[in-house]
Design a protein around this nucleic acid. Structure first.
Length: 750
DNA sequence: AACTGTCGGGTTTTT
DNA sequence: CCCGACAGTT
């Protein structure tokens, strides 16, 4: 049972078993960081700590999921009760409990950055300001910066230095926008991403009883990727851990060399502050790299030594295989793409690599297109992460807006988005009129719609719309998420709108809508206990929205297909591949031109490059092009300074033979529909399947499950109506599953 | 109110 | 190049 400890090296084992008091683990790339974190949690549980008292914070849902899965391997089901998740998702959950104390409804809506930007744009318009000087993008990032330093709108406006700075920067109305933005969000019952942290901080700060509750609950706290936390996140952690009489049971894991989110307010200072805030701190440095060959590790070391700011450590490996690092120099971006894909083919043949062992990484998402073109041409299956995400697509946002309105009617932005989509004769002027009335009376647009509106022009259309939404709201009380979503999709006319257009583009949209519905179906059908006790287990649309609003593309279920991965270096953090292509290594691209004026900007880009190359296990290929299309214009590029920092590039930098005529790109192609969830392979054929009543499921019963196949019931717990069965499925990788019987589709066998 | 065409700006990076 | 915003027209 505890032989997992034997698989660790001495330092790792100490970092795992030293469970009392503050611990800092400085972990180089590939040094078994995730292992330490997960084994530490497993160890805590084995030492008798209740898993419900453990809080593990990560940056991505993916990391959280992986962590849970790995803990489960060691300690079994108890893993599901650990509070493991992203800062944003865990905090959102805590906020829903006590939102009332902050004047928010518990079913508050979460705005993604697009929602936030359009709200800002609308405020800028209301104020009669110029939308280029007050670009929503820029304003949002300034607001975000303020929030991550715990500066409220009022505090900002009251601070002369800030106000003066804005005057000099010719955006004197920034403070006013920030203020209105805050007010509008609150009226709408909505929070943006930063608010999930920001409001939680104030909840803990201003409500001692709440703070006390969570201090008592979370007796062991772990933080992954600590180098990427910002001041606000660290402040929250400190509130929970550092107090008179507290045990300071906190373990943070990070690597200053992999800090790549300074632009988002992350600060390495947190590591220094951590040492100061917790004097009893014990530090463990993991320096042995188990991931990569020596050539790759040495290249990484060469690169990072050019940074002045860093915690000194020596990363080493005993994998002395002699694969070199390959460099591809191309004349143009399309040639780069072609040669990269050629090289992928070669590696697949010569080294028997599978697609899934290969990744193409780039600095900006816009670079993915050409690679896609060639991969398609060569018939290599691939998958693009990031970029225009599924949930950002127009047709998806439209439907989600209908959904959101069913849950939270005060959300004006969504109402405005859908009130005249599909076209139903409610024009801009009318909408503007409604908005005026709402503002004048200090109520939401929905309130206006429900009241008796005077003889406005499109009155009939408005009344019809209101009635339709009222029906949806009424139905949301009885229907599950899928049935309601289906009803909305049909009756709102959104689906027909795209179906009747019948263009390539609209067909793709229809497919996306179907993918969304499939996803909801999957959510409704999923009967597995998905986490800890506090998670809502109903299948309403409201619950569905809560689960997806913090998801990104990277969280899509990965189909068991074999595909090459295309993603930005940022999203590749924490991943590893047998073969990695780091592309577009050109000045102004990687490092990005935007980093040039930022203090320490180049150092961050260099850390990013460091992250990129340390993703590779055995094969690393670096590539760049001499010219590249940007905004449809041909621009010339110089090789990245990072290439010059590598000794390998000096010895291997001879130009590879160039093929004439390969430098042409023409296939333009329209958007490929994004499949959100591939159909799961059902083990059981649904036709012969017949679900049995819940009462028949008892300990020792042999059952058939639609997704997991045959299994044996080991245990049934929980009161009537909320029973949970622990079932052992013999044909599943992770055989032991906890199934909620009220949703389960189980057939009793023999 | 709805449709059409022109123009201008956008590409860091993510929850 | 590729999209959304806006103005001008029906």
């Amino acid at each position: 049972m505890s032989d997992y400890l034997d698989s660790l090296n001495d330092i790792q084992r100490k970092a795992v078993t030293d469970i009392e008091g503050p611990v800092l683990v400085v972990a180089g790339p590939g040094s078994g960081k995730t292992r330490v974190l997960t084994y530490r949690i497993a160890y805590l549980i084995q030492q008798g700590v209740n898993p419900r008292n453990i809080l593990a914070l990560t940056f991505t849902n993916k990391a959280a999921r992986e962590m849970k899965a790995r803990i489960e391997k060691v300690v079994g089901n108890a893993a599901n009760q650990v509070w493991a998740g992203t800062f944003h998702s865990i905090f959102a959950r805590l906020l829903r409990v006590d939102a009332g104390l902050l004047g928010f409804p518990s079913n508050f809506t979460i705005y993604d950055s697009d929602d936030a930007k359009s709200l800002i744009a609308s405020i800028v318009k209301d104020l009669g300001l110029d939308k280029t000087t007050y670009a929503a993008n820029n304003i949002l990032s300034r607001i975000s910066t303020a929030k991550s330093q715990i500066i409220t709108a009022e505090a900002y406006a009251a601070n002369n230095a800030f106000v003066e700075q804005d005057r000099i920067s010719s955006i004197p109305f920034f403070a006013e926008i920030y203020k209105r933005y805050t007010i509008r969000l609150k009226k709408a019952g909505a929070m943006d991403f930063d608010d999930l942290l920001f409001h939680l901080f104030f909840l803990l700060k201003n409500h001692p009883e709440v703070l006390e509750k969570y201090r008592r609950k979370f007796t062991y706290i772990l933080v992954d990727e600590f180098q990427d936390t910002n001041y606000l996140q660290y402040s929250i952690i400190k509130k929970l851990v550092r107090y008179e009489g507290g045990k300071n049971n906190i373990c943070v894991v990070g690597d200053d060399a992999q800090s790549i989110y300074a632009f988002r307010g992350a600060t390495i200072e947190n590591i220094l502050d951590f040492e100061r805030d917790f004097p009893m701190l014990k530090t463990y440095k993991l320096e042995q790299n188990y991931r990569s060959t020596d050539a790759i590790v040495q290249a990484a070391n060469e690169i990072i030594q050019n940074n002045r700011k860093q915690i000194k450590k020596t990363i080493w490996t005993d994998r002395k295989e002699d694969q070199g690092i390959q460099v591809i120099r191309a004349l143009a971006d399309n040639e780069e793409a072609k040669r990269v894909v050629d090289s992928i083919l070669e590696q697949k043949n010569r080294n028997h690599l599978r697609n899934s062992e290969i990744a193409i990484l780039y600095r900006t998402n816009a670079q993915s297109r050409i690679f896609e073109e060639y991969l398609r041409r060569y018939n290599i299956t691939y998958r693009v992460y990031g970029g225009m995400s599924f949930y950002q697509r127009k047709e998806i946002k439209d439907l989600l807006s209908y959904f959101k309105i069913c849950v939270n009617q005060n959300e004006d932005e969504s109402i405005q988005r859908i009130i005249n989509f599909p076209r139903r004769g409610i024009g801009d002027a009318t909408i503007e009129g409604l908005r005026k009335i709402a503002i004048d009376n200090d109520v939401s647009i929905w309130n206006v719609l429900q009241s008796d509106i005077p003889q406005v022009k499109g009155k009939k259309a408005i009344v019809d719309f209101t009635k339709m939404i009222e029906v949806f709201i009424a139905k949301s009380k009885e229907l599950n998420a899928y049935d309601l979503a289906m009803m909305i999709t049909r009756q709102s006319g959104v689906l027909d709108e795209y179906k009747k257009e019948n263009s390539i583009d609209s067909m793709a949209r229809v497919e996306n809508i179907n993918a969304l519905l499939d996803g909801i179906k999957e959510f409704v059908d999923n009967d597995e206990v998905s986490g800890d006790d506090e998670l809502p287990t109903d299948k309403s649309l409201a619950t569905y929205l809560q689960t997806i609003m913090l998801l990104t593309d990277a969280d899509k279920e990965s189909p068991d297909n074999d595909f090459v991965t295309l993603m930005s270096v940022h999203s590749a953090k924490g991943l590893e591949f047998k073969s990695v292509f780091v592309t577009g290594l050109e000045e102004k691209l990687f490092p990005s031109w935007m980093s040039f004026e930022v203090p320490d900007g180049i150092e961050e880009e260099r850390r990013l490059f460091y992250v990129a190359i340390t993703r590779a296990e055995s094969f690393l290929t670096l590539s760049y092009a001499n010219s590249r299309y940007r905004f449809g214009k041909l621009t010339y590029c110089e090789p990245s300074r990072f290439l010059e920092e590598l000794s390998i590039t000096k010895s291997e930098l001879q130009a590879l033979p160039r093929e004439a005529g390969s430098a042409r790109s023409s296939i333009s192609g329209s958007f490929k529909p994004v499949k959100m969830l591939e159909k799961k392979n059902l083990i059981v054929d649904g036709v012969d399947f017949k679900a049995s009543p819940v009462e028949m499921i008892k300990e020792g019963t042999r059952v058939l499950h639609l997704k997991f196949g045959e299994g044996l019931v080991k245990k049934v717990e929980g009161g009537a109506g909320n029973k949970v069965a622990t079932i052992y499925f013999k044909n599943v990788d992770d055989p032991e599953r906890r199934i909620m019987l009220k949703f389960a589709k189980l057939q009793v066998l023999g």
